[in-house]
Write a protein that binds this DNA or RNA. Structure first.
Lengths: 143, 143
DNA sequence: TTTTAATCAGATAATTTTATCTGATTATGA
DNA sequence: TCATAATCAGATAAAATTATCTGATTAAAA
């Protein structure tokens, strides 16, 4: 079992990318998100609720309720979603699983792997959702 | 929850690195590995048994039993251990969790993330255990 | 006001991963 | 041969993750 991000985080990113690709202010129900992205409805609803707590999206209750992007997509980075759902420990922990791995007490691959981790973090920090709209919609069409 | 490799894989890599740092042909019990690396004894024993099936290490039963490196450390790469324990799906699957992500039907970050994945795979493929002996022993001293 | 469809929060269930236990088998040394 | 300490394989248990269920609350429309 190897995974980069949790299922929760993957679904969360997919859903937020989808919301960000909608017109500003659009409200989308968890049922639609579930259907469009082919992911579990109740689970994504729960995930989106926690993302609402993080301020990345908003929600409205009631008959015409749903979720929507709370900020301009140019202000939301992929790393924000990762941080809200999974946290950032992955970018600080030892790939070999050694505890307390640091420049002072490095594991055998500390430098090489550390560089990759930094690159990954930077990639996720540079990708804002406005830049991914079209690609997102293109991908969703293939599901 | 984010993780690069499973706990199983992490422990497996730690243990094989430790074995590779011993003199050629040395047999080490799972009890010693557990004690030195501060990891669960029965679990690492099980993991090492599966690595024995992969040909990376050997085992001897009986009173003076234990595990040892089956090949020259210069012939074992970190990716071999990863492949034996976790498999290589991580290097082929979509970071956003989209199914069937490919160059033909790419997810929004397919190119950038794909490059990072390739780098990670290459890093693990280049690191042979002979090169990591000293650093491994240095790290273990800090546990 | 009522109906309806949505979010919400907590509980429950299913599945997977991590870890430990148990008894059998093995090989060394006395 | 026996005692001992090890691997071995399967079973069991605990913990974590994934997923679904349940009933309460909310808000729009009739």
């Amino acid at each position: 079992m190897t995974v980069i991000f949790s299922k929760k985080c993957e679904y969360g990113m997919q859903a937020v990318l989808y919301l960000a690709a909608q017109d500003k202010g659009t409200v989308v129900s968890s049922e639609e998100i579930s259907r469009v992205l082919k992911i579990p409805k109740e689970f994504i609803s729960k995930i989106l609720q926690s993302l609402r707590d993080s301020g990345i999206i908003f929600s409205t209750k009631g008959k015409s309720g749903g979720f929507g992007i709370a900020k301009d997509p140019s202000e939301i980075k992929l790393i924000d979603i990762v941080e809200a759902i999974d946290g950032l420990e992955m970018f600080n922990s030892c790939v070999l699983g050694f505890p307390e791995c640091s420049p002072e007490t490095p594991c055998p691959v500390h430098d090489s792997w550390g560089a990759l981790r930094t690159q990954a973090y930077e990639m996720l920090s540079v990708e804002t959702l406005d830049k991914l709209k079209e690609k997102t919609l293109n991908k969703i069409r293939t599901l």
